[in-house]
Design a protein around this nucleic acid. Structure first.
Lengths: 232, 232
DNA sequence: CGCTCTATTGATAAACCTCAAATACAGTGG
DNA sequence: CCACTGTATTTGAGGTTTATCAATAGAGCG
């Protein structure tokens, strides 16, 4: 097994190197610099000049966007095997979001030149990356649309299901959201307040759809939740 | 003047062929098939299999997204020199939006294979396209954030300014939105109702910030509107 | 145990939507 | 040029959703 396939082992879920012949894979790992981040530490902040992009090896990263008036929105969670800021790097720009570790995380950082070099040498990497970005665009567009036409309760249901799919882990009590997720976090993610989230989660808990704890949610009856999200 | 520079002349605002040496430009024009669309005619509909992407030569295209419950949301307007569905084509997917001409429009259609072929041969095209998609992603993310933290009046102000920048034309009365834009359109764009939009536009008209007519808006005092959008 | 951070819950108010009805406007055909 | 028709817009009244404020309870941690 050579360096290249080793790289693929590290990023099993990465679509970035799909459709490239084994022998022709770029040796990206040797270019990158591995770093570790503790919870609460920012990889980069909104507005910083974008000079690096990151592969998440371990842990979990939270992307947030700040509004001038102070409120923040959670844009997305980045899981192991996924990449963030891969694109801000191409345009000499600033990061449009803040990336913060919410668990002890290990990432590999790539600089602008490396990314461009790899993409010019391996157009398929650029094409794959395009696919990833498009998917994210569609994701945000869906959330945007939901925000317009759906009531808060439905939006929370949908968001919880989305997070569950992305970061859930099966247990015997149901599907556990596998990281600290407070009422405030969920509120920032769905564009509401922690009070409303609390009320709604309580009502779901009474109905037996979920089980909650401090910064912890288990979806015990995903089916009902899906049904609710679809029909209102 | 050869075909390539001619192509660039037609698409002055397109970034797709930036950073490529003159002599090495792909002869994309010869691949594409030119078509004309009358107002109200759809280039493609949400859910149709995505098999073509489009360059807008002339006219204006409206992208809308349908919600299961029947309401429709305007996602974006596409101007001459811009491209749409460039991305849906990469993934064998369905169009996520409906594209409809709102003026008599001329476009060039490219199929999936052509796009991929061009991008493999000219990685810079893929990189440029990536930039365009990222810009759109950031745009949607900003609107998503606005939607969460801002009140309707502020959102309408911001959206009107955005549309103004994208499609405004200077007149002696102010900056005219250069196409039919109804209260309903603006409501769908900002996620509110036509009644609310009507009330708000009326109040702005009284303050002298704008002048309105049937499906027509002129921003006579952009400065005040910007100030309002920023501060609330 | 005391401290801090998170969550719950009730009361109140604001923002916004919905419905209804009237009015203004643009285009059409006489 | 004018009346007609269909659509767009305005405006009011009333209701719903959800935010805001305030006070309390619970969880984790040293």
């Amino acid at each position: 097994m050579n360096d290249h396939t080793g790289f693929l082992d590290i990023f099993p879920r990465s679509e970035l190197f799909a459709d490239i012949e084994e022998g022709k894979l770029p040796d990206v790992h040797s270019y990158g610099r591995q770093c570790a981040y503790e919870p609460g530490v920012a990889l980069f902040r909104e507005g910083d000049p974008a000079d690096k992009s990151f592969f998440v090896l371990k842990g979990r990263i939270k992307l947030t966007k700040l509004h001038p008036e102070g409120r923040e929105t959670i844009v997305r969670y980045i899981n192991p095997g996924e990449m963030t800021a891969a694109v801000s790097v191409f345009r000499e720009r600033n990061y449009p979001v803040t990336a913060e570790a919410i668990e002890t995380s290990e990432v590999i950082a790539f600089d602008r030149e490396t990314m461009l070099e790899v993409m010019r040498a391996y157009p398929q990497v650029a094409i794959n990356l395009l696919g990833i970005v498009v998917e994210r665009l569609e994701n945000v567009q869906s959330r945007y649309l939901e925000m317009q036409v759906e009531r808060v309760e439905q939006r929370i249901a949908r968001s919880l299901l989305r997070i569950m799919k992305q970061s859930g882990r099966k247990t015997d009590e149901g599907i556990l959201i596998d990281f600290r997720l407070s009422r405030k976090d969920l509120a920032d993610y769905t564009g509401t307040t922690l009070y409303t989230v609390s009320r709604i989660l309580s009502s779901w808990e009474q109905r037996g759809w979920i089980a909650t704890g401090r910064e912890r949610i288990i979806v015990s009856d995903p089916h009902s939740l899906v049904a609710f999200a679809e029909t209102g």
